[in-house]
Computed example of a mutant assay.
Amino acid sequence: MQPSPSPRIPASELRPGRHWYVTAAVISVVSIVLGMVIAVQQFKSVIDAVDTGNQFADGKTVTLRLDPDDEKAIWLEDRIGPSRPTCVISGPGDPALTTPGIDVFLTRDETWNPLYSIEVSQAGDYRITCDSERPSQYAIGDLGGLVTFGGWLLLAVLLPLFGVGVGIVIVLVTAFRRRGHRKRLLAEHYGARTGSESSSTSV
């Protein structure tokens, strides 16, 4: 007498459902795409962070059109000097120049550092003048440079790693629980089948 083959459990009856595999794949792909988008956008931003093509020197007044949402800064071409240059801003409301964070912007032959962050409370035209004990060059740019880019780049790397890690965990947990569910269904099937055979033998 040949042993009866093991019963086949339809995959659709196992729990959790296979849609969790799709969910894991979606999470992984989305996190990778987001990481790439963040890296590309921040790379483009850091390339154009400082408008070095429109530099101005000590005593020259530049006029900017700004609104409160703008995140602008005055950048100083790197040079060794005994004192920190001073800048003043005038315009509508109560504009202010504050201390920026540490950052750097590099060109082929120049190094720039943020000198002041520009804060305005309303849209309008603002005039900025800078002065120093020795000749200096200034430019207007965004607040973020290479240091900020490094922070965003770290996020762009960690985000895909986190997403892929979550996807792997979901796949492993789903596979483990589906295997356990299949074993329980097989045990139930064999138990019912054994009981049925016993009844037939007794008759």
Rank of each mutant, 00 (worst) to 15 (best):
A187G: 03
Q41E: 05
K60Q: 09
I74G: 01
A96I: 10
E188Y: 00
V50D: 11
R178P: 00
L106K: 13
V30I: 11
T129K: 00
F105S: 00
A175M: 06
L34G: 14
I128P: 01
E71L: 09
G151P: 04
S31V: 15
R84A: 05
P16A: 04
Q55S: 09
S83R: 15
S202T: 14
T86A: 12
T98F: 13
A11P: 08
W75M: 06
A11K: 14
V120D: 03
G195S: 06
Y21W: 15
G145V: 01
E188G: 01
P82S: 14
L153H: 12
M1P: 13
V203R: 03
S200G: 03
I102T: 10
L154P: 05
S117T: 13
F149G: 07
L146R: 15
Y138S: 02
F176I: 04
L172F: 11
R127W: 02
G180H: 10
P135T: 02
S31G: 15
V62I: 13
V171N: 12
A192V: 07
S200I: 02
Q2F: 15
K183P: 07
P82L: 07
L186K: 00
V169G: 10
T23A: 05
G35N: 08
I80Y: 15
P160T: 06
T52D: 13
L143V: 07
T23I: 04
T201S: 04
A73G: 08
L115W: 00
F56N: 01
E188S: 04
S6Y: 14
T201A: 03
I168M: 02
I89F: 05
D131G: 10
S198W: 08
V147W: 10
N54E: 09
L185E: 03
G59T: 00
V169Y: 08
P10Y: 13
A123V: 00
L172T: 11
C87S: 05
P92A: 10
V33R: 14
W152L: 07
D58N: 09
R18I: 09
D78N: 03
Y126M: 02
A187Y: 05
T194A: 08
R84C: 04
S45T: 14
G180E: 03
G59P: 02
G163N: 06
E110Y: 08
I102Q: 12
S198E: 12
P92G: 12
R177M: 10
E188N: 01
A187D: 11
W20E: 10
A123M: 01
I74R: 01
G101F: 06
L97G: 02
E77F: 04
G145L: 01
R179A: 09
A11N: 14
P114G: 00
D103S: 15
L64C: 00
Y190W: 07
V166P: 05
V30M: 09
I118F: 00
V88L: 15
V104N: 07
F176Y: 07
P135S: 00
L115Q: 02
D109I: 13
K72A: 07
P7E: 05
E197V: 13
R193V: 02
P5T: 03
W75V: 06
S12K: 15
F43H: 13
S196T: 11
V37Y: 14
Q122N: 03
N113A: 12
Y116I: 00
S28I: 14
V26S: 12
G144M: 08
L143A: 08
T98A: 09
R108I: 03
I74Y: 02
